[in-house]
Simulated assay, not measured.
Amino acid sequence: MIYTVTLNPAIDLVIVTKKLEPRVVNRTESSELQPNGKGVNVSFILKKLGIESVATGIGGGFTLDYITAGLEQKKIQTNFFKVDEPSRVNVFTNVLDQDTEYKEVNPGPKIGQKPQEQFLAYLTATLKEDDVVVVSGSFSSGIKPAILTKIAQISHDQRAKLVIDSSYLEVMDTLPYHPFLIKPNDAELASFFKFKGKLTKAKTVELAERLVEAGCSNVLVSLGAQGAALVNRNQVLFANAPKIKVVNSACAGDTMLGTFIAFLEKKKPVEEALKVAVAAGSDTASRVGLTDFELDVLLTQVMIKEGKR
């Protein structure tokens, strides 16, 4: 089983408006509420591709009820540990006359120790060999990034595969527990090593290889408009991104990760997994909601090339 972990779930309010002016009423063209959180999105993508998962984590209030209802409507299992304070609502505003997007992301509720202990105990009791644990996104206030190490240790002890998509520097502390995959973007990869120079393709490979040498099996680097790179002990692969008009970039990385995991679960070649993952992530970025996986046009634009070690 795949367990997606979201420790700061959200409802995303996605707005499209012709203009955005201060101190006046701005009438919008459209809006949509979406159950969200990075792990939640991974569960949605897995389901679209026929892969079952359990969405778990910690959240609260009527907003968490909305999020879990959205998951369960798609027949995705949920097991969130609930607090009283509501989970956050984020706002993403696409302004047409500016051809730009504004992202307003809230911190989330304060989480005490008891629900954290309950969540960790659940993982310890539930995980089995070859299960996959996907930890994605930021954590609510009160959850220290060091929880990543605890999750890594539990996953290692239970012989489950750990996947991490998070910007915290504590990601580095999980390497002794041999995570299966880490998915940083280019800025996060640089920050892991306190690198402040230009992140060329060669430097991207060098830093990703350092993660592999330290214990990570696979490193999937999101390069934004440049596509993505995959580095492991056997190969270096680059995929270019197709040309799109960005509408809402909030869920593109989650789509890429969920698609990549799904194709590996289906035992597809890693080159195919990377190609479809990049196309799907780009398709999500070009629309308000998640991709519908009608990717024929985008797939013709994505090329996989081997990189140099």
Results as ranks from 00 to 15, higher is better:
residue 27 R to K: 15
residue 25 V to T: 14
residue 305 K to W: 02
residue 52 E to S: 13
residue 59 G to H: 02
residue 260 F to N: 00
residue 126 T to C: 02
residue 195 F to P: 05
residue 84 D to W: 00
residue 287 R to Q: 11
residue 281 G to T: 04
residue 242 P to D: 13
residue 63 T to M: 04
residue 131 D to M: 11
residue 27 R to E: 13
residue 253 G to N: 12
residue 102 Y to P: 02
residue 120 L to T: 09
residue 261 I to M: 01
residue 1 M to K: 15
residue 217 S to G: 02
residue 272 E to G: 02
residue 162 L to Y: 07
residue 205 V to C: 03
residue 216 C to W: 10
residue 94 N to H: 15
residue 202 A to Q: 15
residue 2 I to C: 11
residue 308 K to H: 13
residue 267 K to L: 10
residue 128 K to W: 08
residue 258 G to Y: 02
residue 294 E to I: 07
residue 262 A to Y: 09
residue 224 G to L: 09
residue 183 K to Y: 00
residue 276 V to P: 04
residue 229 A to K: 07
residue 166 S to Q: 05
residue 12 D to N: 12
residue 174 T to I: 01
residue 253 G to W: 11
residue 170 E to W: 00
residue 69 A to Y: 11
residue 127 L to F: 07
residue 180 F to L: 10
residue 246 V to W: 03
residue 155 S to P: 04
residue 267 K to A: 13
residue 70 G to E: 13
residue 154 I to K: 08
residue 203 K to Y: 06
residue 247 V to F: 09
residue 66 Y to T: 13
residue 70 G to P: 13
residue 281 G to N: 06
residue 155 S to E: 04
residue 22 P to E: 01
residue 88 R to D: 15
residue 124 T to F: 09
residue 49 L to Q: 09
residue 263 F to G: 07
residue 233 R to I: 00
residue 148 L to P: 10
residue 22 P to S: 00
residue 154 I to T: 12
residue 6 T to F: 02
residue 288 V to E: 00
residue 192 F to V: 00
residue 143 I to M: 13
residue 184 P to W: 09
residue 301 Q to W: 07
residue 120 L to N: 08
residue 158 Q to D: 02
residue 6 T to V: 03
residue 15 I to R: 01
residue 204 T to P: 00
residue 208 A to T: 11
residue 52 E to P: 01
residue 99 D to Y: 01
residue 289 G to L: 13
residue 205 V to Y: 03
residue 16 V to I: 15
residue 137 G to M: 07
residue 131 D to I: 08
residue 178 H to V: 00
residue 69 A to F: 08
residue 147 I to S: 03
residue 42 V to A: 09
residue 20 L to I: 12
residue 213 E to Y: 09
residue 30 S to E: 14
residue 167 S to A: 15
residue 9 P to K: 02
residue 225 A to C: 04
residue 5 V to A: 06
residue 62 F to H: 14
residue 50 G to T: 12
residue 195 F to V: 04
residue 294 E to K: 14
residue 93 T to W: 00
residue 114 K to E: 15
residue 218 N to M: 02
residue 108 G to T: 10
residue 28 T to H: 06
residue 32 E to T: 14
residue 91 V to L: 13
residue 221 V to P: 11
residue 195 F to R: 01
residue 84 D to S: 08
residue 155 S to K: 02
residue 107 P to W: 13
residue 224 G to T: 10
residue 290 L to I: 12
residue 275 K to H: 10
residue 62 F to C: 03
residue 200 T to H: 05
residue 4 T to N: 02
residue 276 V to N: 06
residue 153 Q to I: 04
